[in-house]
Design a protein around this nucleic acid. Structure first.
Length: 221
DNA sequence: GCGACAG
DNA sequence: ATCTTGTCGC
């Protein structure tokens, strides 16, 4: 059996542990975190991965805590296996967190994935946390284009199963793709992301996690 | 069989 | 996925 088949098997096993019901009351969220990863050289392998986790106050979107993780990685980017490239450095950051937020939002897919195990679901299952995937482009799934107006959205299906939404945050911008990671429902995932949108296309937790990585990289050089 | 394919 | 600048379309 080749490597990728073994990794697929891991994904299928993790998917058995998925919970697509709300584990928390989404009307009483106190804190939310954004997670993002970059690389010293994004087009090389092996290279060093750097991840950030930014914890925010859910109401004000003010930063409460920020941690970073670094890890040498030797796994290339392969579509549907992103977690095996990015999770090691994410876990380095995760173990530094002093306070565990109510929800994590990851840059990438949740169950909008061929084996229901995008990076947001993978992270959510192995940490048993509430997680949501928020991707900037599509990996898999069928949907009709949302109307070209602010906050228009449409349902995304995989084989007749509703797995998430395409959400057009602003007019004339491409939609973002939202799906549950773990311990949250499809519908609640959309509601939470909408409440995290401020003045930009991306929800604040993910946007700030990305910006903080830029700052961090600038400090290294 | 072929094309598409998160970051 | 980076980085920087300018430019175009609504």
């Amino acid at each position: 059996m080749n490597n990728l088949q073994e990794l697929e098997k891991i994904q299928y096993e993790l998917a058995k542990k998925l919970n697509l019901n709300d584990k928390i009351d989404i009307n009483n969220i106190k804190t939310v975190a954004g997670i993002d990863t970059t690389f010293l050289n994004p087009w090389e392998n092996p290279t060093k991965a750097i991840s950030s986790i930014i914890v925010l106050d859910f109401e004000t979107m003010d930063i409460i805590e920020e941690v970073f993780g670094e890890k040498e990685i030797d796994f290339p980017y392969i579509p549907t296996f992103l977690a095996f490239r990015e999770l090691p450095s994410i876990m380095e950051a995760y173990q530094k967190l002093k306070t565990k937020p109510d929800i994590f939002i990851l840059d990438g897919q949740g169950i909008m994935h061929p084996r229901k195990m995008g990076i947001a679901s993978h992270f959510g299952v192995i940490t048993d946390s509430v997680s949501i995937g928020c991707g900037k482009t599509r990996l898999i799934g069928n949907f009709k284009e949302p109307e070209n107006k602010p906050m228009a959205y449409s349902e995304v299906y995989i084989k007749n199963q509703l797995v998430g939404y395409a959400l057009r945050v602003k007019k004339n911008t491409n939609p973002i793709y939202i799906s549950p990671g773990n311990n949250i429902s499809v519908e609640s995932s959309l509601k939470v992301i909408i409440k995290c949108i401020r003045n930009y296309k991306l929800p604040e937790p993910v946007r700030l996690a990305h910006n903080k990585l830029k700052d961090y990289l600038r400090l290294l050089s």
